[in-house]
């Protein structure tokens, strides 16, 4: 197994673990962190391919993805805090009234 294959496999496994966490866990904050794990797996693959192509554009894209992730967390955590204050729990089972 060469390095490229190892790192792409690691990225995909991190994505799979993050997705499994998103489905399995109950706590909203933990689910948010699992989404971050998925994003990290994708970023790892992007960096590997950027390094193979020796491309600056891909590295700039990685930087922009980081910024977007920071903005996403800056919005998502206050929303979770608002939900927790409203429902008095972080358990996703309590949010069933969000169903359409």
């Amino acid at each position: 197994m060469d390095n490229g294959q190892l790192l792409v496999a690691l990225g995909a496994v991190l994505f799979a673990l993050g997705f499994a966490g998103l489905v399995l866990r109950r706590n909203v904050l933990v689910m948010l962190m699992c989404m971050e794990l998925m994003l990290n797996g994708v970023t790892l693959c992007l960096v590997v391919f950027a390094q193979q192509a020796a491309s600056t554009a891909a590295t700039v894209l990685v930087f922009l993805v980081f910024v977007v992730a920071a903005a996403e967390i800056a919005i998502a955590v206050p929303i979770v805090l608002l939900l927790a204050r409203h429902k008095h729990t972080l358990d996703l089972g309590a949010y069933t009234d969000l169903k359409g």
């Binding site: 489905v23 399995l24 706590n27 909203v28 729990t89 972080l90 358990d91 996703l92």
Partner: peptide, 16 residues
């Protein structure tokens, strides 16, 4: 919080 003590939702088997 209850979600701090029981960690998995009902989708444990399909998720795994």
């Amino acid at each position: 919080d209850t979600s701090f003590t029981s960690r998995y939702s009902g989708l444990l088997i399909p998720g795994v």
